[in-house]
Deep mutational scan, measured.
Amino acid sequence: MAEQVALSRTQVCGILREELFQGDAFHQSDTHIFIIMGASGDLAKKKIYPTIWWLFRDGLLPENTFIVGYARSRLTVADIRKQSEPFFKATPEEKLKLEDFFARNSYVAGQYDDAASYQRLNSHMNALHLGSQANRLFYLALPPTVYEAVTKNIHESCMSQIGWNRIIVEKPFGRDLQSSDRLSNHISSLFREDQIYRIDHYLGKEMVQNLMVLRFANRIFGPIWNRDNIACVILTFKEPFGTEGRGGYFDEFGIIRDVMQNHLLQMLCLVAMEKPASTNSDDVRDEKVKVLKCISEVQANNVVLGQYVGNPDGEGEATKGYLDDPTVPRGSTTATFAAVVLYVENERWDGVPFILRCGKALNERKAEVRLQFHDVAGDIFHQQCKRNELVIRVQPNEAVYTKMMTKKPGMFFNPEESELDLTYGNRYKNVKLPDAYERLILDVFCGSQMHFVRSDELREAWRIFTPLLHQIELEKPKPIPYIYGSRGPTEADELMKRVGFQYEGTYKWVNP
């Protein structure tokens, strides 16, 4: 592979701008107003304001973009700056750019259920340069409990009458099928589907988006991507930290609602779906819905739930269990780990287990898709061969690698495990991989909904998990304890083995 010439960040961002501006969906010269509902909250200060700053800094926003914060707290732009700027990672050389960014910011205080507050917000936006005809993007960085009041008031008082209007809704989209349907029906009564952007930030990850290209742009994968060759698929999300004093919020939802029903299920769809007619948003989402419709409700015998306990040999936070978090209700049975087996009941995947695993306070930070292939028929190497695996590593250190057998150097035919490896950090030294939120917010500006969740996708996802969630809430089974920093409950490994996964433990990928 030829040595790549190092590029400056300015040059890299210039390439990104060229890609972005050559499309006809990006209205570079139009006025846009980006409204952050819930501007005083954690999500706004840690993710949304920093993301908008990065896009502005790199010249990736339309030229005439204004940012308006809205929340109940009586704040000023200076207050917003004070709480969000520490997350910007701005350099001293960017000081003038930073001043320009905050000059485009404003803030309006108001209630979430008060019509007069929204009329005041609308008047404020109209007073901005060309504000009355601007395109408006409303980001709901809010708890779902206020979605209905907020969307109703936005629709009645704050819509642009000339430009387009788009609304970005953060997960969780309800707690179960019934609450999700209620919320979807409410929002759909106010906005068209092409105006609604239900954001799952995992769909903005580079390697998640790469799944489609790997599958449908490489001839070698087509013939082997089926039940005849693939023994099982494992989708993993692991965090090495616990709730760390923020367990009160987590306890309301648990690990299945927080990660599995959305992030992991979306990745499953991209692995299992048929080739779409095109890369058009609805063509892709149509195929994802077909996959979900082929999955039956989760069966309790295919589920393992766990909850982390303190590690007596650990240090600091590792010595504390979930129930030691003062914000967690006493005696909570909320799971911090889950392993679930699903089956896609169609011709391509009949009988292939899709194993979804996620948890907190585990032994490493990792998100990946792992396809394990069947054993080689007619073994001539005296059971020395391990199964081939194709691994798409989402985070950290984005990579695609194939675990395969090669001859060990020497005189004899002794096979050993090795890999074919594409590590993004080595291959793409001159490429700026956008943060997931950067990519998705740019998608909203461009009107691309491919990486957002459609209402029928959402409904099918909740259909699969709601009976299990209701059973857990009714019966309150005690989750299996696992030690902070471990791989999780051993019962999860036993479940995976029972459905056909072979864990060798003899080879570990190392970032080159």
Rank of each mutant, 00 (worst) to 15 (best):
V68C: 06
F21T: 12
K45V: 05
W225K: 02
G242E: 00
Y107C: 09
I67T: 09
Y107M: 06
N165S: 12
E244L: 12
F216H: 07
K238T: 04
G245W: 10
Y147R: 03
M37G: 07
E85D: 07
F221M: 12
A25V: 14
G247S: 03
E206I: 15
H201L: 00
D194V: 08
I256R: 02
S73G: 12
P50F: 01
I230F: 06
K238D: 01
G174A: 04
I196T: 11
E244C: 15
N64R: 15
D251A: 13
V213W: 05
E19F: 12
T151D: 05
A78F: 13
P144Q: 02
I162Y: 09
Q195E: 15
N126I: 11
I199D: 03
L43Y: 02
L183G: 00
A78G: 12
I154H: 00
A149M: 14
E94M: 06
R74V: 15
E206F: 10
Y70A: 11
L16V: 10
I196M: 11
R9V: 14
L177Y: 13
F173S: 04
R57K: 06
I52R: 00
E148D: 13
L142Y: 00
N185A: 12
A103W: 10
P143C: 04
E239W: 04
I167P: 02
G131V: 11
F241D: 04
S180R: 01
E193P: 02
M159P: 11
R9D: 13
Q209H: 07
V208F: 04
D113P: 09
L137D: 00
Q133T: 11
R9F: 10
E63T: 08
W164T: 13
D228H: 09
A217H: 05
V150N: 09
Y202D: 00
T91H: 12
N126Q: 10
V68R: 02
Y107K: 01
Y70T: 11
V208S: 04
M207A: 06
F87D: 06
D114P: 07
F87C: 14
V77P: 11
F101Y: 05
N210T: 12
W225G: 03
S188R: 13
H27A: 10
D194M: 08
D114G: 10
D228L: 09
M37K: 06
I162T: 10
T243Y: 05
K89E: 15
A116S: 15
I15S: 05
Y139T: 06
D58S: 07
A231N: 10
D194G: 08
Q178G: 12
E63S: 11
R175S: 14
K45H: 10
S106V: 09
P144I: 01
S123A: 14
S29C: 15
T151V: 11
V68L: 12
I67K: 00
E99I: 08
M212H: 04
Y107E: 06
V12G: 11
D200L: 04
D100M: 10
P240C: 10
G163D: 08
V146K: 09
I220G: 06
S123N: 15
A90H: 06
A141L: 04
D79A: 14
I187F: 10
R246F: 00
D100T: 12
E206P: 11
D58G: 08
L235V: 10
A134C: 04
F253V: 06
R17E: 13
V12P: 14
I67F: 09
I15H: 06
R9G: 02
I234T: 15
R219A: 07
S84Y: 11
F34T: 12
F221K: 00
A231P: 04
L121F: 06
V12T: 15
K89S: 11
L130H: 15
G69T: 01
S160C: 13
K238F: 02
S106M: 07
A141H: 00
F101H: 02
D200K: 01
D42A: 10
Y107L: 05
I167T: 08
L16W: 11
A115Q: 15
S160N: 14
L130T: 12
S84F: 04
F34S: 07
S189C: 15
F21W: 07
A115M: 13
S184G: 12
W54I: 14
F241V: 07
G248F: 10
H27T: 06
A116E: 06
N210K: 03
F87W: 15
I154E: 00
F237M: 07
D181N: 09
I80Q: 12
I220D: 00
I48L: 07
L61G: 00
V77Q: 08
F56Q: 03
Q11I: 08
Q133V: 07
L98T: 05
L98K: 04
R120F: 11
G222D: 09
K152E: 12
T10C: 09
Q28V: 15
T91Y: 12
I255Y: 02
G247C: 04
R219Y: 06
W54G: 10
I255V: 14
I167V: 13
T243A: 05
A116W: 13
I224K: 04
L183V: 08
S84H: 13
L20M: 13
T65C: 13
S132V: 14
K97H: 08
I230T: 10
Y249S: 01
N122Q: 14
V150T: 04
D181H: 09
G69F: 00
F241N: 15
L20K: 07
D79E: 15
T10V: 13
G41H: 00
D100F: 12
A141D: 01
N64K: 13
H129F: 13
N226Y: 05
S123P: 03
N229V: 09
V146S: 05
D176T: 05
E18A: 12
K45Q: 13
A90W: 05
Q209D: 09
E193N: 00
G222R: 05
S184M: 12
W54D: 12
N218M: 00
Y70C: 11
S123T: 13
R227I: 03
D113V: 06
I33A: 15
D24V: 14
F216L: 00
K152F: 10
K45L: 13
A134T: 11
L43K: 03
P144R: 00
L128D: 06
Y197E: 00
K47N: 05
F237D: 00
F250R: 00
V146P: 06
D114W: 10
N218H: 03
K238Q: 04
H124W: 09
Q11W: 12
D24P: 05
N226S: 10
G59N: 14
L98M: 15
R227L: 05
G254L: 01
A90D: 06
H201G: 01
D194A: 08
Y249C: 00
S106G: 09
E193I: 02
L137I: 15
T10Q: 09
W225T: 03
R192F: 05
Q83E: 12
S179T: 15
Y107Q: 06
R9N: 13
V146W: 03
T243K: 03
K97F: 13
T145R: 05
H186V: 07
E18K: 14
I35W: 00
I255H: 03
